[in-house]
Write a protein that binds this DNA or RNA. Structure first.
Lengths: 207, 207
DNA sequence: GTCTATAGAGGGATAGAC
DNA sequence: GTCTATCCCTCTATAGAC
């Protein structure tokens, strides 16, 4: 089914440039990262870049879209899995840990999202994409929350969507804290699990 | 007690440069803001700038320190007031509203803090200052939480310090959301109040 | 589709006059 | 303490060869 006839290099070059951009943006910031540095990282020159993207801003928008799609897909996938395996997990703590694989990013991903969020405050197009992604994430997490609450007979003290937003806020802040503190990945994940579990315990009652 | 003998202009120039920098940084980002643009906004030239700051990075560090001190002072002040007026407020909602005057920043302040947080992920010196500030903020808010809980006979479902971190996380995320959405200041404050009140209701029980 | 070469603008930082 | 003038570097984007 692989068809080399379809212009493959173009997609490939685009993908490599996007991957390189996400790294360099995370390392140097959106303004600090030069097109030259991104191309060098991807193994191309600026000519190839401008053949694939109209401008640096266009690249950023494409990157935002890619990151948002990826994360959303991961979480949606987890929602689906949870629907099938509802009876496998035992404790809420285990559940949290299991779901957290999705919420845990490497430092690069965390910095990149933070960079995008900050710049969405200044750029309307970026803002639109960011808000759509954020809303979709909250909905998916709310589905998980509702499913888990039903399966484990937990009473939510606030609506599922509010709970979902709380979780996402805590994840975001905790990931940022972990990166700024220079915490080792495993330590960071422990912290994330702990804070999520504390939150979950605080806003639910067992029936 | 005002002593014009003490070199007054130096402090004044420094202050004006810092104020201008906080605006331009918020508007264009740390990398996007040129020293020239900052000086122009402050009404000076680059010569004056380099007489007051060793480099652009040094300026950023000074700005971070200033912002952190200001915010911390505001919250500490509120803690003190609350100790004196403990019996004046009636409902938790009113309390939240009253305290929120502190947590509410203009868009410029929100963008600047977001910019600083993002860059703290890449800069060790900035990280150190940011973490110290964040920890101090959490402590102060925890004091408020504990005081209010005692005065209103509320049982906290999680330790005060955890509650405080939750509040700060929600404030941060909500302020960011408001700016990205382009919400009017009053609408933003309503949202902030509502989300804080929801959180407070969820993690406390009345005795 | 990707390269090299280059235009054209703007950046950070310094030196020295006032 | 603040100014002007300047050095040197890096940046984005384009033009044209391969």
């Amino acid at each position: 089914m692989t068809q080399p006839a379809v212009p493959r290099s173009r997609e490939n070059t685009r993908a490599r440039l996007l991957a390189a951009a996400s790294e360099v943006f995370a390392e140097l910031g959106l303004e600090g990262a030069s097109v030259e540095a991104i191309c060098e990282r991807a193994g191309f020159t600026r000519g190839a870049f401008y053949s694939n993207f109209a401008s640096k801003e266009e690249l950023l928008l494409g990157l935002m879209q890619q990151v948002a799609d990826q994360k959303l897909e991961q979480v949606t996938e987890r929602v689906r899995e949870l629907g099938e395996d509802a009876s496998v997990h035992r404790s809420v703590a285990e559940l949290v840990t299991s779901i957290l694989d999705v919420g845990t990013d490497g430092p690069t991903g965390v910095v990149l999202m933070s960079e995008i969020r900050t710049n969405a405050m200044r750029d309307e197009r970026l803002a639109e994409a960011y808000l759509a992604w954020e809303a979709a994430m909250a909905e998916r997490v709310a589905e998980i929350v509702a499913d888990v609450a039903e399966a484990y007979r937990l009473r939510l003290r606030i609506p599922a969507i509010e709970f979902a937003r709380l979780i996402l806020d805590v994840w975001d802040a905790t990931c940022a804290f972990a990166v700024i503190s220079g915490l080792a990945p495993l330590v960071a994940k422990d912290l994330l699990t702990q804070r999520t579990a504390t939150l979950a315990a605080a806003v639910t009652d067992s029936e």
